[in-house]
Design a protein around this nucleic acid. Structure first.
Length: 437
DNA sequence: TCTGGGGTCCTAGGACCC
DNA sequence: TCTGGGGTCCTAGGACCC
């Protein structure tokens, strides 16, 4: 048996934990660059569409009807870590599937227990982290995902649905759109519709050979999972990354090569930090840049790659290569919206094969330098020590006008509590059910 | 006007091997 | 008229996920 624990409106919920006054109020979180809405609290769902642009809801934000926040990935990652840690109390088998979801392997429970266990998971996560979650329980991962989806849809389920305890599971499946199934996206949904398959029960009962032929093994596995045959096992140990990407839109359109190079150097620095944190080195490095898709006139995009003589995660080496790639990809006369760097052909840092034709690098010394840079930046601030190529004052930096605080990861930004003198009533912050303080 | 970021997996097809 | 069988490796592109 599997449980899927899914955080409700995750990013919006993270912001609410540290702003108890926002309880019951509509909150949205914006994408990078304050572009569009990527998370909505339940109260915001009727007011704002997913992916609505900030521009289109600016009035509601200005009037205070909706509380908007810029993306705060450091906060969300840390809250995610807390949720996962909490879940590890409930099963030895926890697979973090995304920033706001995890599968739990459930053995040794009778079917009747599981619904109660789900409720216990839900209340504990809420109490320990402040984050509301939904829990779906079933014999396969695909069904557990659907169960969690249903648990959100019907408030009377109190956030938990044990699919195996349903009196008539097929009736439930018939009520769910086939596009809700894990692995069925926009394109496959359209293809299935053309075959007359629009709800989950129809997909479950579809002809296996036909599905295999049209949708490959993934489609077949999905059908089997709907029938209760597990095809996607627990994967508690994350498999090593195959690529690392850093890409950002600019705060405004950029025309100068010098600005793009600064941005690329900055992204390369972030990318190298990630590689070092993962203990990986890159064998190939790619830089790309493009204009806006939404301006059909004067479109341009280009990418350049390099095979590195010696796989590395040394920021200076990667910036050196990245600058050459950026120059090669750049064509003057365009308004650039976005740049991206990609590290591929990743391998563990300790197992690098020497290059017969390249001079051996003094990597020990370089490694120590990078370690020193990383530890200074961790202690002080992310760019306390930076490379000259990153520029001193970026003109291209992304917008982030509604940033909250790194409440849980930065000494200078911890939440503060104002305590009023006894015997006045406790401020609402302290009496809220959030345990965050 | 504004319209995100970061990934993984599978398949088809071509080149090549014996 | 018929012209094998069984593989591996690589890449591009398309699909999906959150």
């Amino acid at each position: 048996m599997f449980a899927l624990v899914d955080c409700n409106s995750f990013f919006a919920s993270c912001e609410k934990v540290f702003r108890p006054a926002l309880e019951g109020k509509p909150v949205v979180v914006l994408s990078n660059n304050d572009g569009c809405v990527v998370a909505r609290s339940p109260e915001a769902k009727s007011l704002v569409a997913m992916q609505a642009t900030l521009f289109s809801i600016q009035d509601l934000v200005n009037r205070g009807t909706i509380h908007a926040f810029s993306s705060n990935p450091i906060l969300y990652r840390d809250m995610s870590r807390r949720v996962i840690q909490t879940l590890q109390h409930f099963s030895p088998e926890v697979e973090q599937y995304s920033i706001d979801e995890a599968f739990l392997g459930l053995h040794g429970f009778t079917k009747a227990d599981l619904g109660d266990y789900g409720q216990k998971i839900r209340t504990t996560v809420k109490q320990w982290t402040g984050i509301p979650v939904s829990v779906g329980i079933a014999k396969t991962k695909t069904l557990a995902k659907l169960a969690a989806h249903e648990a959100k849809r019907y408030p009377n389920l109190n956030g938990v649905l044990n699919f195996e305890a349903l009196a008539d599971p097929n009736a439930v499946l018939a009520s769910i759109d086939v596009g809700e199934v894990w692995g069925i996206g926009r394109n496959l949904k359209a293809k299935l519709k053309a075959m007359g398959i629009t709800n989950v029960l129809q997909l479950k009962n579809a002809d296996k050979t036909r599905i295999k032929k049209k949708f490959g093994v993934l489609g077949l596995r999905t059908v089997l999972e709907l029938r209760g045959t597990p095809c996607f096992p627990m994967e508690p140990v994350a498999s090593p990354k195959t690529m690392r990407i850093v890409s950002r839109s600019f705060g405004h359109l950029v025309t100068e090569l010098s600005d793009i190079k600064e941005a690329v150097a900055t992204y390369t620095t972030r990318c190298a930090e990630k590689l070092r944190a993962d203990g990986l080195v890159a064998g190939q490095f790619t830089v790309s840049m493009r204009t806006s898709y939404y301006r059909p006139e004067n479109q341009y995009s280009a990418a350049r790659s390099v095979e590195l003589d010696q796989p590395t995660n040394d920021t200076a080496v990667l910036i050196h290569e990245a600058m050459r790639l950026a120059e090669a990809a750049f064509t003057p006369g365009y308004e650039y919206l976005k740049a991206k760097v990609i590290a591929t052909e990743l391998s563990p840092a300790g197992e690098v094969q020497g290059n017969l034709f390249a001079a051996p690098a003094d990597t020990k010394k370089r490694d120590r330098l990078m370690q020193a840079v990383d530890s200074l930046n961790r202690k002080l601030s992310p760019d306390a020590v930076k490379f000259g190529a990153m520029g001193l004052k970026p003109t291209w930096a992304m917008r982030s006008d509604y940033f909250s605080q790194r409440y849980t990861t930065h000494w200078g930004e911890l939440p503060t509590v104002k305590v009023m003198s006894y015997p006045q009533p406790l401020p609402s912050v302290l009496s809220s059910d959030s345990n965050a303080f």
